[in-house]
Amino acid sequence: MDPRTTDLTTDTPATGRTTVALWEGGDAVRLVEVPLPEPGPGEVLVRIRLATVCGSDRHSVSGRRAAPVPSVLGHEAVGDVVATGPGGAAAAANGARDGRPLAEGDRVVWGVTVACGTCDRCAAGRTAKCRAVRKVGHEGFASAWPLSGTYAQHIVLPRGATIARVPATLPDELASPAGCATATVMATIEAAGPLTGRRVLISGAGMLGITAVAAARAAGAAQVLVTDPDRARLDLAVRFGATSTHGVDAPDGSGSLGPVDVAIELSGASSAVARCLDALDVGGRLVLAGSVAPAPSVPLDAERVVRGWLTIAGVHNYEPRHLRAALDLLARTRDTVPWHELVTPAVGLSQVGRLLTGPSGVAPRAAVVP
């Protein structure tokens, strides 16, 4: 796309061009100007209003997660529709809350995955595991989808992307995480089954865990126990509705919990997975969503699973309905849950490199305004 370096203080691209934060491997991130494309068939061009920094992008930069180089990272954002290609508005209507085609100026969020819609997995309702899946912020800059990330002034959303209008009552900083963290949590809540009157354990009090506390309470959970080694995170969990907390201080993560009806594991630590299994009461259900990287195996007592009628479910990414559920949750709880505490004040696009490589902030999400 003929990238060229731009002045890091430039906020407005030249006519017909846009600025992206191009990750070039390691800790190398620089701003470049590239041509602003016309959206093709089924595509939607969006101007980014605000993006939030997911921990998975920090993992890419640190080498913990494989990613194409160079690329435009970032997948959580909210933006305004600038233009749609032939069929683009209609193709995006499946994610719109009222089913109407998208129009220029609509404020929208979008899903992480882009599915083909025709393979056996898509037909079975597992579009997140489409055999030809592509992901926002995960595609190489030299690929057919260079403007795939949200650390940029514009993004192109291809045919197959799930796009949803944002309710007017939701500020940008609440809407942005909906496309990753909040929607993923709604998938775990669905996998957990009915929560009314249930005892719920949430393992890990990062962005997903804190969001899961609010979601579980909104779903009617009677008790929500949260575990995490960080005291500040546990205090935040209480403000989001946790009824009790447990600091995991032992090196091996030991410590008895429960009994609980549902455990949602979001940390990815093997010791935490084992602890959640041990905490389940008869008929209990464990939902695993944090184990997205190689980790030591977890011993499984098959007899206990059988005799205890236990259920273990895995959740990775989410389906279009979960994005809509995320927006519904945020809209319903906007005035009762302190969502603003999860996102730091936004900085400019030139600061993306620092956010990806520097120490994590106090809030779970940093924000960028391109």
Rank of each mutant, 00 (worst) to 15 (best):
G283Q: 15
G204F: 01
V273L: 14
S203G: 06
S203T: 07
D249N: 07
W309H: 15
A293C: 11
P229E: 03
A216L: 00
V260M: 04
A218V: 04
T211R: 01
Q223W: 10
G241I: 00
G209W: 00
D301H: 10
D252E: 08
L277K: 12
T196W: 10
D301N: 13
D252Y: 10
S254W: 09
A279C: 13
V224F: 05
G206Q: 06
V248M: 05
A222N: 03
A279P: 14
A272L: 11
D281K: 15
R239L: 03
P251H: 04
D261I: 05
D278Y: 09
D249R: 09
G241L: 02
I312A: 15
V200L: 02
R275C: 14
G255P: 04
G283A: 15
G247C: 10
A215Y: 01
G204S: 04
P299I: 09
P251D: 10
P299T: 11
V260H: 02
D278Q: 09
F240A: 03
A274K: 10
L234A: 00
V224K: 05
E303L: 15
E265K: 09
G220F: 01
G255Y: 05
S203W: 03
G197R: 03
G258C: 04
A237Y: 03
R231A: 08
H322Y: 07
G283W: 13
E303C: 12
R285V: 14
L310I: 08
G209I: 00
A212V: 05
H246F: 09
P296Q: 14
L286Q: 13
P299W: 11
R285E: 13
A263D: 06
A263V: 08
D261Y: 05
R233M: 02
L257K: 11
A232I: 02
V282G: 15
A289Y: 11
P296L: 13
G204T: 04
V287I: 13
N317S: 15
I202R: 03
L257Q: 09
V238W: 02
A295K: 14
A313F: 02
V226S: 03
S254R: 12
R321K: 11
S291Y: 14
G204C: 03
A222R: 06
V224I: 05
D278C: 10
N317F: 08
A293H: 14
L286D: 15
D230W: 01
A215L: 01
A192Q: 05
D235G: 00
G283F: 13
L310N: 04
A269L: 12
F240H: 06
G314I: 12
P296Y: 12
V273M: 14
A237M: 01
P251Y: 10
R321N: 08
N317L: 12
L195W: 10
G314Y: 12
V224L: 01
I210Q: 00
A218P: 08
N317D: 10
G206Y: 02
P296V: 15
V200C: 01
A242I: 00
T227E: 02
V238L: 04
L277E: 13
S267L: 01
D235H: 01
D281F: 11
S297I: 11
S254C: 09
R275P: 10
A212W: 03
A295E: 13
R231E: 06
P251M: 08
E265R: 08
T227S: 00
P296W: 13
I264R: 10
E265G: 06
A279L: 13
H322Q: 14
V213W: 00
D228I: 01
N317A: 12
D261W: 00
G241H: 00
L201W: 03
V213D: 04
